[in-house]
Amino acid sequence: MPVPQTKAELLEAIDLQFARLMRELERVPGQRYREPSIEGHAKGTVMSVGDLVAYLIGWGELVIKWIDRDQRGEPVDFPETGYKWNELGRLAQKFYADFRALSPGELVARLKQSKEAIEARIRDRDEQALYGRPWYGKFTLGRMIQFNTSSPYANAHGRLRKRKKANGPT
């Protein structure tokens, strides 16, 4: 799918990739959510399906935080307070820990909530706010949202498909 260039394309990309991801997640039995079976986000690590969902929740909630802080005129600490862009493996580990206590159903519900909250923030903005000017460095707000929603949803879908081929459907 091409990189979204408009509000409508961004919303479509998020919905499409999220739907594909959800179809794969629905095929994973709850008792298998915590089994380490997927290549991790940090080199040489292995994660569970639950960790993968936690990672997506973490990034989604960060996007919401960035947008909300920016809207209030507050500084945004990219990617997250206490983390630098070259420490994303450590940030992934934080996300895994943050959501480890959630059941599979709670993880999926929280992921859906973050996606819906991001889409609401997109709908609240016009084309100029999303794609008319740089928002972070050279990147527009729309591009930053895409980097942290539809792209990771597609990546997670691929990881789940690879896991299923290696381990079978359950």
Rank of each mutant, 00 (worst) to 15 (best):
W135V: 00
E87P: 02
L130G: 05
A109P: 12
A8M: 03
Q17K: 13
K115W: 06
P4G: 01
T149P: 00
V53K: 04
L56R: 01
Y131H: 14
V76G: 12
L130W: 02
G158D: 12
W66A: 00
F139D: 11
E80V: 06
P2E: 04
L10R: 01
S37A: 13
R100P: 07
K165Q: 11
P36M: 09
F147D: 07
R27D: 11
G132N: 07
S103E: 14
M144W: 01
R27T: 10
E39D: 14
K112E: 14
I145V: 05
Q5P: 12
E26F: 03
G40Y: 10
E61A: 11
A8D: 15
V49A: 01
W85H: 10
G142Q: 04
G58F: 01
G40E: 05
E9Y: 04
R34K: 12
A13F: 05
I14L: 09
Q146S: 13
P29S: 11
L25Y: 00
L52V: 03
N167G: 05
A8V: 07
I57F: 02
M22G: 09
T6N: 03
D124S: 12
G40F: 12
V3K: 10
A101S: 14
P75H: 07
L111Q: 07
G73M: 10
D126V: 02
Q31H: 15
Q17I: 00
D124P: 06
L141R: 09
T140E: 12
K7I: 01
I122C: 04
R123T: 04
D68M: 07
L102R: 07
R20N: 13
V46L: 09
V46S: 13
A101H: 10
R32E: 15
W135S: 00
E106I: 08
R34S: 14
P79I: 05
L56E: 08
N148V: 01
A19R: 14
I118N: 11
A166N: 08
T170D: 13
Q71A: 15
W66S: 00
L107T: 02
V63D: 05
R143I: 01
D98K: 08
A54F: 09
T140V: 03
P2V: 00
E119M: 14
I118C: 09
G168A: 09
A154T: 08
V46E: 14
T6R: 02
D124C: 08
Q17L: 06
K138E: 15
G158L: 04
H157W: 15
V108M: 12
T6P: 13
Y153K: 00
R27I: 04
R125Y: 06
G137Q: 10
P2A: 06
S103F: 06
I145M: 04
P79E: 10
A8R: 13
